[in-house]
Design a protein around this nucleic acid. Structure first.
Ligand SMILES: [Mn+2]
Ligand SMILES: [Mn+2]
Ligand SMILES: [Mn+2]
Ligand SMILES: [Mn+2]
Lengths: 222, 222
DNA sequence: AGAAAAATTTAGGTATACCTAAATTTTAGG
DNA sequence: CCTAAAATTTAGGTATACCTAAATTTTTCT
């Protein structure tokens, strides 16, 4: 059947895109965990997505899924909505970067293409959201991301923060309090090989960051 | 069962409120027609709304429904969202008054109370939407409307347009082209008893309007 | 009043998107 | 290479919100 892109389907495609993009496989369990639903529910849905016309995912039993061209387009449409909305909520309604995600999560599925175009134009077609994540273009291409995880840096190296990959309110608030936001210039002061902790200076503050933070902050070397 | 206010339920409550407010009875058929669904579907839903805890409507078989206190509150919440959104779309994104309805219809169900509060504050807590419809207050009281239908006026009388009760794109565009928008000062030039046509002057333009237009424009006499 | 018309409800379905329990398949460790 | 654990799928349900056809109730009109 010619698939109607329900909210649920849009969310599956978006999550599959995000998992795949970050190198993880879009397995049944990974999807179930990320979406907080049961594994059988995921199996049912990916079977449906795989047999829709046109197919939105490629699926081989027990092997997880990858997006087809059509699936990827649909995913990028949702991601564009999400990121434009986040930027717009921050720029026009004074939301802070830790508050926007939930709101965008619901709005992304109901705005029209006209609305999308209007907020994009009103903001001068931004290319990044408040977390520094790249916004897919109007013709649904994802710009190439050149950044490296902060965890790849070592003492004496200096870099500029490009993006922070997180929607965790507490983490985002913590990072903001340290000045670890997109655009910030940082310098590595120390590295601990045992626990992979990095001591990072930004301005005159320093912080010791564990791997689950340094792997979520992406930078470009200076 | 303690009712979750689904999008569908929100729409029922809103329509019931609007029908009741405009003096029509919220009968099964009236609801079915307005919502473009079948009469049996309406019966099923109003039975559910009547037996939810707390009940959202009062229902007697074959007699249609009225909103309970809780049902009215929920309806006013949706209507507040809708009208604030319409105002917001016009004021900040340059939508015209004939374009806002559809977009608001989808957004009204997914915005947070925080979003509602932010757009209301950003606009200085407006009391009317772009069509002149009154916006329920933050504590969900509907302001009293003093206006009369334009159809009640007769030659020589002058009045100011308060609101236009329509979401019909074509009608709204037509009225705007004539200058028949909220705030416009009009004068009745002629009345035809047979067809209830009114000849109305606004600025230096005149137009002959039938009852299905003059009963949807509400005015206050000058 | 009585019959026809109109409005409404009941009966019986469908599609979507979830769920738990049980069966099966894959993977990993000894 | 074989078995236990982990991952996944199948089987069988639920709730929501629609639908059409048929039955019933109410209203209207002569
Ligand atoms: Mn986000
Ligand atoms: Mn979502
Ligand atoms: Mn609606
Ligand atoms: Mn309106």
């Amino acid at each position: 059947m010619k698939q109607k892109l329900t909210i649920s389907i849009q969310d599956y495609l978006k999550i599959i895109y995000e998992l795949t993009e970050s190198g993880e496989s879009a397995s049944t369990n990974a999807l179930a965990k990320r979406m907080k639903i049961s594994a059988p529910s995921v199996t049912g849905m990916i079977q449906k997505l795989a047999s829709s016309k046109p197919p939105l995912v490629e699926y081989q039993k027990h092997q997880g899924v990858t997006l087809t061209r059509e699936g990827r387009r649909a995913a990028l449409e949702v991601i564009r909505h999400h990121r434009l909305l986040e930027a717009w909520l921050v720029q026009t309604l004074g939301y802070s970067w830790d508050e926007v995600h939930e709101e965008a999560e619901r709005l992304e599925h109901v705005i029209s293409e006209d609305f999308e175009q209007r907020i994009a134009a009103a903001m001068g077609n931004p290319d990044r959201d408040p977390h520094g994540e790249l916004i897919p273009t109007a013709d649904l291409k994802m710009p190439v991301d050149e950044s490296l995880p902060l965890s790849a840096l070592r003492p004496k190296q200096s870099a500029t923060i490009q993006r922070v990959q997180s929607s965790d309110t507490d983490l985002l608030r913590y990072l903001e309090s340290l000045g670890l936001v997109p655009g910030a210039v940082i310098e590595i002061k120390a590295y601990s090989a045992f626990d992979h902790n990095l001591t990072v200076r930004v301005g005159r503050k320093s912080a010791v960051l564990g791997l689950n933070i340094t792997s979520r902050i992406f930078i470009e070397k200076n």
